[in-house]
Design a protein around this nucleic acid. Structure first.
Lengths: 236, 236
DNA sequence: CGGCAGTTTGAGGTACGTCAAGAATAGTGG
DNA sequence: CCACTATTCTTGACGTACCTCAAACTGCCG
């Protein structure tokens, strides 16, 4: 399948090809890219890399949901990021050539494409535009972090939990009559690590969210009324 | 002073030259760098750029203290970062070619070196290693943000305020007999925007911090007992 | 059926927010 | 030097949200 003069890009068939950090590259780099390229399917709960692991390459999530988490000395942990399809992960340890500071674990069955470290380095070397695109991904991460810091300072925990539900619903919700619903891919404990409260508080936040009437929560099953406002409002 | 065959690097005399993002560059780029280079002294309270301003270049703080802050719709604001000498600021809007999302204001008399946008772009184009060093600065910012998110979730507000005092004391404290002291360069309101609480709470945190005995706080004047532990410990 | 991890609920304490008033400080003009 | 004002900072009272510890409940798997 590979004509050396016009080799096939390994990401060519991916939904996210147009926004890939590996595209465009010089055609002579495509074969190096292909050499270092591999796909890996992760089961729900499976770990892609552990905290303190050496970097093995640049990872791109093409399907599923991955949690990036750091563990602290006292055994607790913070969920720093939820990675969605199209996201690049592991780029800090790749660019800085240092061990991972987070653990990457699949919350749902996921697919990850990897470009092995050595080959990735070689391709980057020959294509400075990749560096620019990786920097752009870094800046997206900074923007996300800033948004989170701002939200923590200005938004109630209840609203932040709602925002997380909305984001997850957008990615994984299924439409049924008059409502979106999903199986929540995070435990109460995960959600607590994400918004920075205790698991008991998450339980109580769910109760308050449900009382507002938009969401119905039963364990991991979440239902969300879609757009109730177009109906006649007021209590006729 | 400029022999074109071996021009003088504009950052050559800077304390932070060895860690400069503009170093090393091809010698043919030094003249472009010099052309775009300018120094600016900021008075206390003066603004380097405003939120929504177009990017004018890459800024490097060589002296002083600069607060990076974003204002929200409701008029409140969050202090996202304190920039110390050697720090690069404004790099997100430079790299992404977009307006600033933060305002940069000097909290102390400061000196900022600027490489104008167009010239900076030209130098980066000819020296991919600069892109790598800028990416490295991005990653430092991500690391700082992660540390802050983790601290917000795991550390008390009192301890986080102490940590800020220690950092400022390290940068601006003056030694006197048995204690470090400084004039606090941030208002209570700034500190509140930094740790995400109300100004009244900052006042009360200071009272509790003072009660612990290490710090003495009187308005903006902060004194800190240095290393009291080597004295005889225990009571009589 | 029992065991186990995940989740919920309750009771009581602490820290922070909010509103309001008062005290200290800095800046201004005589 | 002293008013005068504006800003910043502190203090108090009270309500709310979250934490902590403990216990009970749920669903799932062996």
């Amino acid at each position: 399948m590979s004509d050396p003069s016009n080799p096939i890009h390994p990401c060519g068939a991916c939904d996210f090809y147009n926004d890939s950090v590996w595209q465009p590259v010089a055609s002579c780099s495509v074969s190096v890219l292909s050499r270092g390229f591999s796909r890996k399917d992760l089961n729900k709960g499976q770990t892609l890399y552990y905290q303190e692991d050496e970097n093995r390459g640049v990872f791109c999530l093409s399907k599923g949901l991955v949690a990036l988490r750091t563990y602290h000395q006292n055994g607790s942990s913070t969920l720093l990021r939820l990675a969605y399809p199209g996201d690049i992960i592991g780029f800090r340890s790749f660019l800085e050539n240092r061990p991972h500071r987070t653990e990457a674990r699949a919350l749902l069955a996921s697919r990850v494409c990897t470009v092995a470290r050595r080959d990735a380095q070689q391709v980057v070397q020959g294509n400075p535009s990749i560096l620019a695109r990786l920097a752009s991904r870094c800046i997206s991460e900074i923007d996300r972090n800033h948004d989170r810091i701002i939200a923590a300072a200005t938004t109630s925990n209840k609203q932040r939990l709602i925002d997380i539900l909305l984001r997850l619903m957008k990615a994984h919700g299924e439409q049924s009559v008059e409502c979106l619903h999903m199986q929540l891919p995070l435990s109460r404990s995960d959600l607590a690590d994400l918004i920075g409260v205790q698991t008991e508080t998450v339980s109580r936040l769910f109760k308050r969210i449900q009382a507002d009437g938009v969401f119905h929560v039963s364990g991991r099953e979440i239902q969300m009324l879609v757009d109730p406002s177009p109906r006649r409002s007021g209590s006729g």
